[in-house]
Nucleic acid binder design. Structure first.
Lengths: 134, 134
DNA sequence: ATAAATCATAGTAAATTAGTAGGAATTAAA
DNA sequence: TTTAATTCCTACTAATTTACTATGATTTAT
């Protein structure tokens, strides 16, 4: 029940990008790696997932880099974490079959718990996080 | 961010014990293993944790077994899962130090998320779960 | 042209989780 | 009082997942 480092790191990266959102230019992986302490290669993979999910956008080639695809107030923490954390699903049986079948009482619990987590994380924007206003 | 099978299984076991709570006698691991589909040896370990946490109590020796230490309406799902799932902590840095230090904005998020999860799970009793009244 | 960057993907090491195994201690019942 | 059924204790191993490394192709500003 731990958040993976991929998800934690992804959020750190998003926070750094949010701080720089007013800048017109993009931020390179090298710089992001430096200020977050994540290795470049690992960070590349993480930000690639965020790009595929349209959370960030990129410029390729020399002096290229990444920036947020939308304003920090329009990106929720839930959106980011779902991309990096297997849709934030607490157990597999919510969307797959399990031995207990569909009438398993626990299944309803997991479903509600998931809704709870997701709806909470969806109320928090990157902007709020950067301003430390939770 | 998956719930471990230990926690899932522990909850199944607790549900089975809750169904049988009105019986005066205890239930053996062998029987619990049979009706949950968990192997006896693994189940033994899981229920041992629940015993140490005073969620279940046991009779040793022949015709021994386990039963809930309290009525199903007095045991919350949160209580059970915390015992089996490293206190339900989403990230380590909530109670340990991390590279980012104490002024890390994400840390507050994890703390709030944890509170959210725990307070939800604490509102649900085993009784509710058995009656499928979430 | 060149250098600085993203992009794609395969591989490996570390850590965690899940499950096995063996046997000691206890106790109800024959 | 022996026996069989059971909990209790702890060490080990296999499987899976996570975290990270490595290589190199592609793109593009200068």
């Amino acid at each position: 029940m731990k958040m993976s480092s991929k998800a934690r790191y992804g959020l750190y990266v998003a926070v750094e990008l949010a701080k720089r959102y007013s800048d017109t230019d993009v931020v390179s992986v090298a710089l992001l790696a430096q200020c977050t302490g994540i290795t470049e290669k690992y960070l590349e993979q993480i930000i690639a997932m965020m790009k595929r999910a349209d959370i960030v956008l990129s410029n390729r080639g020399a002096s290229g880099g990444y920036k947020l695809a939308r304003a920090p107030q329009d990106i929720s923490v839930g959106e980011i974490l779902r991309v990096l954390e297997d849709n934030l699903q607490i157990v597999d049986c919510i969307h797959k079959d399990c031995a207990n079948g569909c009438n398993c009482v626990s299944r309803n619990l997991w479903t509600k718990l998931n809704e709870n987590i997701n709806s909470y994380l969806d109320t928090i924007s990157l902007q709020q996080l950067v301003e430390d206003k939770l």
